[in-house]
């Protein structure tokens, strides 16, 4: 049995003990269970991965890479049509140095710094299922000083981690747990969503529940747009059928009508932009870190 599995079993026993004590009305601050959080703030944590043991001094934030990526995409926008979310993907996934050139007309030093740091945490889209420990969220600052397997390291960035992962601290932790959660405490604090301060905590990060999606927002008159697209398609199909049936007049009328509707709907003319609005990528939803934990509340 590996170390993480042993810790997981220990946590199950502790949570069970808290659950059994919950009905005794004892004044205790013990709490535990399964929870989801967008970010966990930890002071001087110790981390156990399947490969390493890491210690970090100072405050750090445990956050899923997916949540961090969403935060950066939503942090900046370019005037007019917002291309920043596209630039983020181009920069980190295509290693496209030209991506930053798309921001060259702006004072993008802070955005570029955030992008470079984000690219150190994420290389491929599936990395969104990992978690990272960062020293600051805004602006994004990575952990550069830590002790790994007893050896002090300075200057190298602490990257993202595969799961499972154990994090513990006796110096304070803080997070908001979100639905769905299954938390019990011996003082009966069992709300499904609350902000919580811990004196000490042991948590096992089990998975990332990624509900973030990219949508194209800013569209007006969506219904009209769909009608135009469908009518255009029907006109072109019936026009093609008329051509087969050698009905030249219908063919020409339907071809012109279908083409005109398609052009009006999809050609990026001033009229099109005004009527349908500027399309803009938005990232919505959350990428929760799902963990099992127990500890004592502050």
């Amino acid at each position: 049995m590996n170390e993480i599995q042993e810790i997981s079993n220990l946590m199950d026993k502790e949570i069970e003990a808290i659950t059994l004590a919950a009905t005794s009305h004892l004044p205790s601050k013990k709490i535990g269970g399964k929870a989801s959080a967008r970010v966990v703030k930890l002071q001087n944590p110790k981390i156990i991965t399947t490969e390493n043991k890491i210690e970090i001094l100072g405050p750090v934030f445990l956050v899923s890479v997916g949540e961090m990526k969403k935060a950066i995409k939503n942090r900046y926008k370019t005037p007019g049509q917002n291309v920043f979310p596209e630039v983020v993907d181009d920069f980190i996934f295509s290693n496209d140095k030209d991506a930053l050139n798309r921001l060259r007309a702006f004072d993008s030093a802070q955005a570029a710094s955030d992008l470079v740091n984000l690219a150190r945490l994420v290389k491929v889209p599936s990395d969104s299922e990992k978690v990272a420990l960062v020293s600051k969220i805004k602006p994004l600052e990575l952990v550069t000083e830590y002790v790994i397997d007893g050896k002090h390291t300075s200057g190298n960035f602490l990257g993202s981690f595969d799961l499972p992962l154990v994090v513990m601290t006796d110096n304070g932790a803080q997070f908001d747990f979100e639905n769905p959660s299954n938390v019990v405490g011996t003082n009966q604090r069992v709300e499904e969503s609350m902000a919580i301060n811990m004196n000490n905590i042991m948590l096992l990060v089990e998975m990332v529940d990624d509900n973030t999606i990219q949508i194209t927002g800013g569209l007006k008159h969506v219904g009209w747009g769909n009608v135009m697209a469908i009518v255009s398609l029907i006109c072109l199909l019936v026009g093609a059928f008329s051509f087969i049936e050698k009905r030249l007049f219908f063919f020409i009328v339907l071809l012109i009508s279908g083409a005109a509707l398609a052009i009006a709907r999809y050609l990026p003319t001033n009229w099109n932009k005004e009527f349908f609005g500027m399309s803009e990528i938005q990232v919505v939803g959350n990428s929760y870190t799902v963990f099992k934990f127990y500890g004592e509340m502050a």
């Binding site: 900046y76 926008k77 902000a195």
Partner: peptide, 24 residues
């Protein structure tokens, strides 16, 4: 408001990049 500042830095709204193209 629920007291918590843990996630506030994740939620900051998009800010327009500082300097605009000269055409704007």
């Amino acid at each position: 408001p629920k007291y918590s500042d843990v996630a506030k830095d994740l939620d900051t709204p998009a800010e327009v990049l500082k300097i605009l193209p000269r055409t704007d």
